[in-house]
Design a protein around this nucleic acid. Structure first.
Lengths: 346, 346
DNA sequence: TTGTATCCCGTAACCGATTACGTAAACTTA
DNA sequence: TAAGTTTACGTAATCGGTTACGGGATACAA
């Protein structure tokens, strides 16, 4: 038989209210009584029933995390960071993983709103394909005043979101390559998402007076195999690029492989870089240059903002927080001079 | 104002009990009344409060998933499979991610048992380092009759678990290599975990009358860099192995890199293989031979068993379910004959 | 001495559902 | 037609907590 508050009350010879006060650190109780009750609680392993607690107090101390794709290491890392931060704030994480489409996202939003969670963290990836539908759920939550924060690459003016400066990230990365002397820079990107990274690419070229060559910007499906294929095509061009950037580290990894299969060396013949700084690319024989965005910072900001909304301190205007990107230069763009590698030709 | 059951009762001009009967498909209600209530429910977007429901019925329809390391792609895939299966059975997944030690696992077990979840799925990895402590939590849950299932590589006789036949997996993989003519097979493994794979390695050699060479079994920390280092040492031996197996695909990936850095080719000079069949290794320029264990099957079996226990149909004796491994032969051990590659010397 | 503020605690309503039990009406059966 | 059964629904208890409210005891000020 589980120890309930009424049994505790009996044991301590006080009312249930007093037990509640002792457990929850309320001030209206004497030191001695609290100590006595806490000791008994430990002794009888009393754990207040969360459901009863939530029912009355209307707080579940749980947040919902809706993910697009947990098998993407970036999201896995984000999930971990979110869970850590949540626990440290006394919250739990209820998981929702979308597999196919946005229909599911709507379903999760509905399921989570039945008193199961205090707020929702929405992560998106494929969503941009059909952003109106996604925006719908969010506006719906906004209408019923349900706390949520969007974590994503696309900025929706009307809702609170945390994002990283994708444009600046790309700008910095491309500028780095230009500084190294590259003029023909391939860019494997996705058609719908990550528009901001594309903007950064364009802006960096423009700022350095390099004419844009549309054919170096190749839209692909995200994937190592697709990246390899696209890279091969790029390398077969007469004006072969001297640098190729993937829209994320996986794509960049595919590029890296393809370049070497082609018989060229990295970074001497072709520099390679990506985005996200997933663990894998640090451990490659040629570590990848990439742009990191701290998932810890994102998780921190996201949960801070969400808790602020949950606790009712919601700002009138949607809050938009941007995490600064961090360019991480590794061997795949800049050969290690100690080993006496050749400087990239200018 | 949210629609509650009492408001619904008012609207439909019936008692709350009748509303409950309509919503939950109970038989003691006439067809017409049910229809009328369901229509109203849709109209007023009535969503029963989960907390109230759980408080009374003592079922949260949530399971807790305690993970060792979500950044490992294998566990990410497992998490996804578990979530999918849970949703399809009408359950949600509450996430717990351990970072450091088993202290946290105990903490999660405690937190989750306060009426938050109906049962727990325990996944483990580093646990084997200190299995007694982990076993402690499990025996504790067993004592208080709390439903849980262990998903892991180590078999604990006393608790229900789902595992894959690690010994057979290794046995099949090593046998495959032996069949290809390999006699000197390196094995990069971890000191504590995956004893079963080590057993499979030994057994396969013994069954083929190949003497065991201790020096080919190298204990390492799991990681790409560590794998590269260990591989280099193996390749520098006078009796260089003709095949090297990593304890998981990440390690195998490190091996693959190191072998090629060393100037040898895969699989002609050195065959390489791993375990887990993570997505990455399928997309390499030289796809890796590996042993897959279906995370979907694991998730299915685990949740089926867990739900059986939750629903009280618990078997007297601990149930042990083993998922069969599947050897996936790819180019890293067997060169594609179409391309006219050389057969490995026998 | 009396009034009042403070401290500590108990009483009971309440959160929103489920469910055991009771019962009137309709329907069977002898 | 009387008695028993079934059907459909209402009443009220209940799950295990939180919290608004009230009141007794003590301390302190007037």
């Amino acid at each position: 038989m589980k120890t309930t508050i009424s049994k505790m009350a009996q044991l301590a010879n006080v009312s249930e209210a007093t037990v509640s006060r002792a457990i929850n650190n309320k001030p209206e109780i004497s030191k001695q009584t609290r100590q006595r009750i806490l000791t008994l609680a430990r002794q009888f392993n009393y754990q207040p029933n969360i459901m009863a607690k939530s029912l009355r107090s209307k707080r579940t101390h749980t947040i919902g995390l809706i993910l697009a794709d947990i098998e993407n290491p970036y999201f896995a890392a984000l999930t971990k960071a979110v869970e850590r931060k949540a626990i440290s704030e006394g919250y739990h994480v209820l998981l929702g993983i979308m597999v196919d489409d946005l229909q599911q996202q709507a379903e999760y939003v509905r399921l989570f709103q039945t008193g199961r969670v205090d707020g929702i963290l929405l992560t998106s990836q494929k969503a941009e394909v059909n952003c109106l539908s996604q925006l719908d759920h969010m506006l719906d939550m906004k209408r019923r005043n349900f706390p949520f924060v969007y974590l994503g690459g696309v900025e929706y003016r009307d809702v609170d979101y945390i994002t990283h400066d994708n444009e600046l990230a790309a700008y910095n990365l491309i500028s780095h390559l230009i500084d190294l002397g590259h003029r023909k820079i391939g860019f494997l990107h996705t058609k719908y998402a990550t528009k901001m990274r594309e903007l950064g690419y364009r802006k960096a070229l423009a700022d350095h007076d390099i004419p844009l060559n549309d054919e170096l910007m190749v839209p692909i499906e995200v994937g190592i195999a697709q990246a390899r294929q696209a890279t091969e095509k790029l390398l077969n061009r007469p004006d072969r690029p001297t640098a190729i950037v993937g829209i994320n580290d996986f794509v960049a990894f595919g590029v890296l492989q393809a370049v070497r299969e082609f018989g060229l060396s990295v970074p001497q013949d072709v520099a390679v870089a990506g985005f996200d700084n997933i663990e894998l690319v640090q451990s490659l024989d040629i570590p990848l240059t990439t742009v990191a965005i701290s998932v810890e910072k994102m998780a921190d900001e996201a949960i801070n903002l969400l808790l602020k909304k949950i606790e009712g301190k919601k700002t009138k205007v949607p809050e938009h927080i941007t995490i600064e990107p961090e360019l991480i230069i590794r061997q795949s763009t800049q050969a290690n001079r100690k080993k006496g590698d050749v400087e990239p030709e200018i």
